[in-house]
């Protein structure tokens, strides 16, 4: 579509653009190009060039010099922390994105088939989206607190009321195996409301005649979900999957506030590593190399995803 709907309004207004038209175009586009040039394009090119140097903004004693691909080869071949961070980041995305997709799609479908109170449920699930990561992290640090945190208190009283005994309660953020899944759960809590609203918008686009047809064919609710809802939501699913992966691969603040990358580096992510190298060790060149490797990883995964999401369901 697009091209027809956005057919320019000025068509047929004589020869070329009028004076006033040029004024508004210049006012709109000129400063935009200037701003993006200075704060987006220049920094990106600059950082790429400087990722081949020993760029260090603090040290006056070490003069700036080119180091070739040393930053990249150190990162990929000599820095075990990079592979740990990469693995952790992908692990986080693998936990967060599919679970979020499934939960939000199911909840949105359920909300959509309500007769009343749709708006109420949508709002309740949306509330966590409004919370800042800082506030959410403070809340969940307390929920996950092993001794008197909310989760273990509730668990203990549940187990107690069943008359069972337990030896040790889970330690969540303090356990190297559980820390990342725990953060992913918090992030799910904080994020699904947004995806639900997007799915609800997608569901509005499915004509009810599709469901009627499915029912005539004798489909149950579950079959209708699987054979009507899911295929027709494909563009929405692709949108949420792709933006979800891009966002997850850049995760940082949650770990910075909740675990500081621990225990034993189990929640250290790529951006966390970049943050440390840049703003703790002042190795700007090295950190820039990290950022471009991350960029490449994101591009590769996004392209792969696009391909998979486009072909898998093509009829």
């Amino acid at each position: 579509m697009g091209s027809f709907a956005s057919e320019p309004a000025l068509r047929g207004h004589g020869k070329g653009l009028k004076q006033g038209t040029w004024t508004i175009v210049a006012l709109a586009i000129g400063p935009l190009i200037l701003s993006y040039g200075i704060f987006l394009i220049f920094p990106m090119i600059y950082a790429f060039v400087m990722s081949f140097t020993n760029w260090n903004p603090v040290s006056m004693r070490t003069p700036l010099r080119a180091v070739g691909v040393a930053n990249y080869s150190e990162l990929l071949f000599k820095d075990p922390l990079f592979w740990t961070s990469l693995k952790n980041t992908i692990y986080y995305a693998a936990l967060r994105v599919p679970a979020g997709l499934v939960i939000s799609m199911v909840l949105a479908t359920l909300i959509n088939s309500l007769r009343r109170l749709k708006g109420f449920y949508r709002s309740i699930y949306y509330l966590p989206v409004l919370t800042s990561t800082v506030a959410a992290a403070i809340m969940w640090n307390w929920i996950y607190q092993p001794r008197f945190g909310l989760l273990n208190s509730v668990l203990a009283s549940l187990i107690g009321s069943l008359g069972l005994q337990v030896s040790g309660m889970p330690r969540y953020l303090m356990d190297a195996k559980m820390a990342m899944p725990s953060i992913a759960v918090m992030s799910l809590w904080k994020g699904i409301g947004y995806d639900i609203v997007i799915f609800l918008a997608g569901l509005q686009g499915i004509p009810s005649s599709m469901y009627d047809a499915a029912k005539v064919d004798g489909a149950t609710g579950l079959q209708a979900f699987w054979h009507v809802t899911v295929p027709l939501l494909r563009p929405t699913i692709a949108f949420i999957a792709i933006t979800g992966v891009i966002g997850s691969l850049q995760v940082f603040t949650e770990m910075y506030i909740m675990t500081q990358g621990g225990p034993v580096n189990s929640t250290r992510t790529i951006v966390y590593m970049l943050f440390d190298q840049a703003f703790v060790n002042s190795r700007f060149g090295y950190a820039s190399a990290i950022s471009f490797v991350l960029f490449a990883v994101i591009m590769a995964i996004t392209l792969l995803q696009r391909r998979v999401l486009a072909t898998e369901w093509a009829y």
Partner: peptide, 29 residues
């Protein structure tokens, strides 16, 4: 408003949304 290059500008704006923030974080600093 129709003007030469408007499509290029729009596509470029869309393309900037693909740039991950960590890439510009350090040089901006």
């Amino acid at each position: 408003v129709r003007f030469p290059g408007s499509n290029i500008v729009f596509l470029s704006v869309l393309a900037t949304m693909m740039i991950p923030y960590p890439v510009t974080l350090i040089p901006r600093f």
